[in-house]
């Protein structure tokens, strides 16, 4: 990368970051100041700025990003936490629906309520099932990646 390129990249980076900051300011103005007309502009600036930052970093030489390594090393733990957090609220919702199902059926439209309970049960099963599968998959990632040679794998196949 030439010096000019580097300078240009530096400028784009500043512009992108500024877009994000300005966008956040507009969102605050919209939501706290009640000026909802600017919300879409704020959102647009944040998106464009984010894309700009990402693209500039992506096209740059690979560098040792310490925080990325930190994330990578903890990807199993982070994955587990994310899985738990993303599933917990729906589980609460559907479990609650099942708990109150008898009461709901007593309030007339019992057939519909029963159907609702059934749907909730299916969704609960799907959520819990996916959580279990995802956790298993993430835990498998804890196994170290072995750089097995292709020839060995070939032997296996043969």
């Amino acid at each position: 990368m030439t010096k000019d390129d580097a300078m240009l990249t530096g400028r784009y980076r500043i512009a992108s970051a500024a877009a994000v900051v300005l966008g956040i300011a507009l969102i605050l103005l919209s939501e706290l100041g009640g000026v909802h007309e600017v919300r879409v502009f704020g959102a647009g600036l944040i998106s464009l700025g984010g894309i700009g930052l990402g693209v500039l970093a992506g096209l740059d030489q690979p560098r040792r990003a310490e925080w990325l390594a930190w994330v990578r090393d903890r990807r199993v733990a982070l994955g587990m936490i994310a899985a738990l957090v993303s599933v917990a609220p729906v589980v609460v919702a559907f479990a609650a629906a099942l708990v109150v199902l008898p009461a709901a059926m007593g309030e007339g439209r019992s057939g519909m309520a029963l159907l609702g309970g059934l749907i909730a049960l299916l969704m609960l099963m799907a959520s819990v099932g996916c959580f279990v599968l995802a956790v298993r998959a993430i835990r498998r990632a804890a196994r170290p990646v072995t750089p097995g040679s292709p020839a060995e794998a070939g032997e296996e196949a043969a």
Binding site: V20, G23, I24, I27, L28, S30, E31, L32, R39, G42, A43, I46, S47, G49, G50, I51, G52, L53, G54, V55, L56, A57, G58, L59
Partner: peptide, 21 residues
């Protein structure tokens, strides 16, 4: 909406970074 819109920058950064890479 404040959180929704400001945090939106994060997936955009990640997506753009990975694609650009």
């Amino acid at each position: 909406p404040i959180l929704l819109y400001t945090l939106m920058a994060i997936p955009f950064v990640f997506l753009a970074y990975g694609l650009a890479r």
